[in-house]
Design a binder for these strands. Sequence first.
DNA 1: CCGAATCCTCGCTGATACTG
DNA 2: CAGTATCAGCGAGGATTCGG
Lengths: 124, 124
Amino acid sequence: MKNAIEFNPYSKACPSREVLGEVGNLWSVLIIVSLSDGPLRFGQLQSRIEGISNRMLTQTLRNLERDGLILRTQLPEVPPRVEYSLTDLGTHMLKPLSQVEKWVLQYMPQIMENREKYDAIVAE
Amino acid sequence: MKNAIEFNPYSKACPSREVLGEVGNLWSVLIIVSLSDGPLRFGQLQSRIEGISNRMLTQTLRNLERDGLILRTQLPEVPPRVEYSLTDLGTHMLKPLSQVEKWVLQYMPQIMENREKYDAIVAE
DNA sequence: CCGAATCCTCGCTGATACTG
DNA sequence: CAGTATCAGCGAGGATTCGG
């Protein structure tokens, strides 16, 4: 498992599966895409991503920081000011992730329609 | 919420958030990308996606079918033969999703490295 | 072979309260 | 402001069994 080519998310124990699940996670996507415009503070993220709990925001930020996708910068001020920004790696991941978000938004109407049809058929 | 432009995953109650979470889900990604080569049967999917349980495979397939991303085709044979294939909509979603998978695989080594560094620092 | 149904558990997640 | 700590619930998900 030394070479990149050997990573395989279809394999049960491969760490790439974990990463794929983590990166694809809703909160991660929303956070990463949010940071595409530039650095944001903890509170700014929390208000932008409506409904994310304190706990989940913290936890997801930590994971992303650990993977090196985002950078946490604590400014020496009072009251504390912490900014989160995308690293180069994070910027790379942003591209495909924002595509996913874009596609979902674009096809939402069709998906909604499909669901209605499906539910109507199943309900009969 | 009639227009596509009005969907917003940053809004708590918007259905696009649910869809984004569902599509980004690990199992969904692996299934959709798996089907990019052509139709696969239930059992084929289960063996390709190592470790997915009967239950999760069924459930995820149903959700994807409901959203209209995949098509379930039951062939009139004995024993039963069921094939799953991507719909046009599914094929559209495949593009960004396979990109995500590709990026993850490509940067896995760096991510692993970042994690080690992070853990080493935190552990001290 | 495909999958529905059931049971059970474990950890994700939210809510709340508290600290530097 | 930016978290950490703790607790409770609840739903995702695995294992197993059964049916078409």
